[in-house]
Each structure stands twice: as structure tokens, then as C-alpha cells.
Amino acid sequence: MDDAPLLEIKDLHVHFHVYGGILRVLDGVSFVVHRGEKVGLVGETGCGKTTTMKATLRVLPMPPARIPGGQILFQGQDLLKMRDDRLRRVRGRGISMIFQDPTAALNPVFTIGQQIRAVVRHSTEKRLSRSQIHDRMIQPIREVALPDPERMLGSYPIQLSGGMRQRVCIAMALVADPKLLIADEPGTSLDVTIQDQILRLLGRLVEEKDLSVILITHTLGIVRQLTDRVYVMYAGTMVEVAGTEELFRNPLHPYTHGLMEAVPRLTGGGVSDGIPGRIPNYLHPPPGCRFHPRCPHVMDVCRQEKPGFYRVSGDHEVACFLYRDKERSA
């Protein structure tokens, strides 16, 4: 196996220029996905997880957004410096994405067949025969276990249920055999029984096709179910990364800890008060560690310096001064 990471984001900064100044939305985010790896990106509304992925696909609106620093290496090539025609080839064939709301992701005035055909056409330079196109359209629909593929091609999105639409979106993302699949809150707009089906489907497809996956979500349980490694984001910074099992057994960063405490458990025992305060204003983010105004363990150093990443054990790193002395050399 090739050791170079499939996707590597290095010290990414994203700013939004608005009235009153600059929103420093991403403040040095680093992120690695290896081949065949399933990585979770967890954080709450407004923490920058979607901005990170939009920057990766280069679909951030610029202006107002600007990327003053950082690299996004996909198979060793910097996506931020790539020419548009090559980038188009990476999108879809290299990286594809499925969105939270399958209804908004599908065009209501075209049939499913028309929309998948467009994706198939763009997926290759070769001229395909009618039957080849048809095969390539039917194949992913079968893979996502949609009933009656032929009839499915002739239906409009409105004729399908929410779960079926999500399956169609997954099918479309798989048409070009991408190496990396970015799933933004898959199934969270659906009911829990349907969400469960979608997650199990994703899990199966990822195993079968040896895909790499980035799962973006604010639901910790979904991450636990589907990923190997988890990054936790807070206010535009990465605060913790660890293997999934390790993270859920031993969350270190006060934010991760608070987040896990806040989730109501099936075992009962009441609900914790959560994390006091709210996510900071990006116009004037707190100096030092961005979490310090809400942190129960805040120290003087937290208010002044930005913590680095401290490796606590094998693959467990945390950006918190509490663990400065516990660092182990890898």
C-alpha cells in the first residue's frame, strides 16, 4: 500500500471579508485522510467543518472568502493551485460529495435517469455507446439497493421518498468511481429508521469499493458507527484527533469531553447542562485557545497562546495545554 496520504490539508486558513472586518473562519486546520480510511469530522453548527470541505472542493464563494494560507494536497497535488480544467476532473472522479438534504441536491424538473446520465457523460472522456451509458447508469442504482432500477430512471425526484432520494444521491456520487467520498450529514434530515438504513448502506459500499470517506456530522453516534478515526473541530480549529474507539473511550479535550457529556444516553441518568456560553464571534475570536472562554479548566497560558497538537498516545493528539506535559514521542 502507498504510504502517502490520499488527502492532506495543511494549516488551512479561510477568511471571509465582510462589513466590519474579517471573519477568521478557519484558523490553521490540518487534516489527513489515508487510502481506504473512513474519517469523521465532528463539530457543531458554525465550527467550520463545511467550510473546510467547501475549500477542499474549491466551491467557496470568493469573494467574500479568501484563503490566505495553507495547502490542500490530493494525491500529492495542491488543489488550491490547480488549473480549472484539471480540477473539474478531480471533482467527481477523484472526490465526490453527498449532501445532507437530498431533496435540494436533485433537480426537480429532470428525471433521475437524465440526472444520472449527465454524471455518466462527465465521468469519462471516452465516447460511450448507448448500452455502455445505460449499464453505467443502472450499475450504481443496483449498488444502492433501489428497487426496480429501470422504472427508477424514469421517475422524478418528487415521486420518490426521502430515503430513496438519498440513495439516488449516493448512486450519483459513485458513478465515476471516486477515490474519496465526502458525506455531509448523510441522512440526518431523514427519520431515524431511514437514517440507519442509509448509514448501513454507506458502510457496506465503503467496504466493498475500498473508498476513502470523510463523514461530516454533528451527531457523535453516527461517527462511532461508521468511522476509523475522528477529528473534532471547534470554532475553526482542530481540537482533537484519535482513533474512533480510543476517542469515545477516552475523550481528552475539554470540548470533546463536554460534547460527549451533553448527548442524552439510552442508559438514562439525566442530561448534563452541556457547555456554557456560545461559539465565538469570528470577527473577534478569543486570543490563544479559541475554546478558553467556555473551558472549565482554563489556565493563564490558554488566554495568550494557541496550543499546539500534543501526541498523548499512538494516534491520539489533542490541542490543549492540559496535555503539554503528557506528550509522548511517537
Binding site: V192, L199, T219, L220, G221, I222, R224, M260, R265, L266
Partner: peptide, 15 residues
Amino acid sequence: LLASIPVLSEEEEAL
């Protein structure tokens, strides 16, 4: 419904 809930721990999984 219960089987579909994403949970955070083994203790919950057991339920």
C-alpha cells in the same frame, strides 16, 4: 426504532 439509534457506548449498544 430503538435498534436504529446511533449511540455512544457499549452499555447503550447492549440496550
